Amino acid sequence: MKKLIKLVPAAILVLFISAFTLNKTVSNGYGIGDIAEDFSLKNIDGNMVSLSDYKEAKGFIVTFTCNTCPFAVMYEDRIQALNEKYAPKGYPVIAIMPNNTDVKPGDALPEMKKRAEEKGFTFPYLIDEGQHVYPKFGATKTPHIYVLEKTNKGNVVKYIGAIDDNHTDASAVKVKFVENAVDALLVGKEVEQKETKAIGCTIKV
């Protein structure tokens, strides 16, 4: 009985540590004001792409997305529209596919290339091979957006979350979170709504 009593607290401690570790893994990542590390990821054209390649950029709309998530598909046209509107102003979209392609073969590089051609993507569509980049950002969904502002200190995280407030109907959107954030940065203002809840499919590991 004494051994059992000793084992119970130990078991609870193990469960507590496991739960804490799991929670830390899920919630870990950049916060508002953090400096996002640069990366080098393969584009659908086979070339490697880094944020540092964009010498004239004022910032970036880093978008974690994929082919197979219905939420991501619903946002494809809006992501394209973001790039068309803001890339000329210095805030290009950098799309990253974060899923494990063994779990989601429909997100493999050839399928990414096919989808980009079908939709006429004008932004780079990169694959996070080895899944090293998305955990640094703390992305958990597709789509999940990070607006970065280029500064002398590096690329500062200014907004994290959803693209807008209506994933099902673009015509019914009332608040465009990403547009509001970028518009504020372009005129030197503080982003008012810095974080929102990303709505989408969980990233497959």
Rank of each mutant, 00 (worst) to 15 (best):
R115P: 09
F123V: 02
K104L: 09
A116C: 11
E129P: 09
D128I: 07
L109E: 01
F121K: 05
K119T: 05
E117C: 13
Q131T: 15
A116E: 01
E118D: 13
V133F: 08
V133L: 14
N99R: 03
D107K: 04
E117V: 15
F121Q: 00
H132P: 04
A108Q: 03
T122F: 05
N99Y: 09
F123Q: 09
E111T: 02
E111W: 05
K119L: 08
F123Y: 01
F121I: 03
E129W: 12
G130M: 12
V103F: 01
V133N: 11
A116Y: 07
K114C: 15
L126P: 05
K104M: 11
L109I: 15
N100S: 00
V103M: 02
N100T: 07
Y134D: 00
E117H: 08
G130C: 10
G130E: 13
D128Q: 04
F123K: 03
Y125V: 00
G106A: 06
D102C: 12
L126Y: 04
Q131S: 13
P105K: 03
R115H: 11
K104T: 00
K104S: 11
A108W: 05
A108P: 02
T101I: 15
E129A: 13
F121C: 10
M112A: 05
V133E: 10
D107I: 09
G120N: 03
I127M: 12
L109S: 06
H132F: 14
L109P: 03
I127Q: 09
Q131R: 15
P110K: 04
M112F: 11
E129G: 08
K104W: 01
A108N: 08
L109Q: 02
I127C: 06
N100H: 00
E117M: 13
Y125M: 08
P124M: 08
E111P: 06
P105A: 13
R115A: 03
D107N: 08
Y125A: 02
A116I: 01
K104N: 05
V133H: 13
E117P: 12
K114P: 12
H132G: 15
L126K: 00
I127G: 02
G106M: 05
V133M: 12
E117Q: 11
D128S: 07
E111Q: 06
G120E: 06
P105D: 09
D107W: 08
G106Q: 00
Y134H: 14
P110S: 13
D102W: 04
E129H: 10
Q131H: 14
D128L: 11
T101W: 01
K119N: 08
N100K: 04
E117F: 13
K113Y: 04
K104A: 10
F123A: 06
N100D: 12
R115W: 04
I127S: 08
E129F: 11
P110A: 14
L126A: 04
F121R: 07
I127W: 09
F123T: 05
E117T: 15
P110F: 09
F121S: 01
A108T: 03
P105I: 05
R115M: 00
H132D: 15
T101V: 15
E129L: 13
D102P: 00
A116L: 10
E129I: 14
P105T: 10
Y125W: 06
F123P: 06
T101Q: 10
A108K: 04
A108C: 06
